[in-house]
Amino acid sequence: MPVERRRALTRTLLYGAASAALYLLLYLFRDPVLKASRQGGWYFLVPIGVAFAFSLVHGHFTGHFWELFGIRAKTTKK
């Protein structure tokens, strides 16, 4: 396997694992998270923070995922 592809695979697996871990944590700690969300006020930081964290990790994973399958943006030389 070429080095470039191996790296891409490693990156995808790492982000995939991190993303899965985040979802697992959300599942395990759903009750305290929902309780905090329900309080409102400055607790708004909880859902917003969670959304940012997921977008960062899961966003990277999905991007690498499609690239791994060869679906990447068309690049044109200008």
């Binding site: 959300l26 929902l34 969300s37 409102g40 708004f44 909880v46 859902p47 959304a51």
Partner: peptide, 9 residues
């Protein structure tokens, strides 16, 4: 979220 209405799940 300030009103506590977001179901983050």
């Amino acid at each position: 979220a300030w009103s506590g209405l977001v179901d983050i799940r």
